[in-house]
Amino acid sequence: MPEPMISLRNVEKTYKTAAGVTYVLRRINLDIHEGDFLTIMGPSGAGKSTLLSILGMLDDNWTGEYFFIENAIQKLDRKHRADLNRKYIGFVFQSYHLLDNLTVYENLDVPLSYRDISRKQRASMVADILDRFQIVGKKDLYPNQLSGGQQQLVGVARAVVGNPKLILADEPTGNLHSSQAKEIMELFKRLNDAGTTIVQVTHSEANAAYGNRIIQLFDGWITGETRAGQAVATR
């Protein structure tokens, strides 16, 4: 069995309030291998998005151990975490989070501009992704000139333009109607088939079915895991 791409050991996240300590995540132990398509499910407030943020290194305030491609994240400072994020991870958000003041082309260029990539090469990479996602005709439009599905398509394109090893998607179809959602999920599936590891948060069983693993979260605990064709109770 190869080493997992991601390994979480006893990861916990808490908030201190006047009433005491509130746990958001409890003793999370999780391995994710390269090529996995993992779905995180659970009711609101279970800690799904928080777990995704920790995986994406957007959240610094947690305890435990997190190994990402042999890097001990808990030992890294913010700059080095940002470096890893930039190199290996792409994000897709429920609210798309495209930059309103930039065109489609520019939105796709932004993540590349944060890497050490020449202008010429960036232009080539953006042109390639526009072509792959068949949105060349939309490249000069601003986000508010696109439909929700088109915006999320651009959001996914932006996530993959830097050829990440891992895509983290937080309810990527939450704001889309079913046909658009299906289109996006099929896109994820194709990316996964091509070797990209995907972790998604969703409430949708149909979306979860595109993946090969599902973990259930409840009140911060992992309460169960289902692999394609089998169920594993963890608590």
């Binding site: 957007l58 958000f93 495209l98 930059l99 830097g162």
Partner: peptide, 16 residues
């Protein structure tokens, strides 16, 4: 705020 958060999320360093 959202714009900056997105930039940070998609790889911008805080200094950048």
């Amino acid at each position: 705020q959202r714009e900056i958060a997105v930039r940070l999320a998609i790889g911008a360093s805080p200094w950048r």
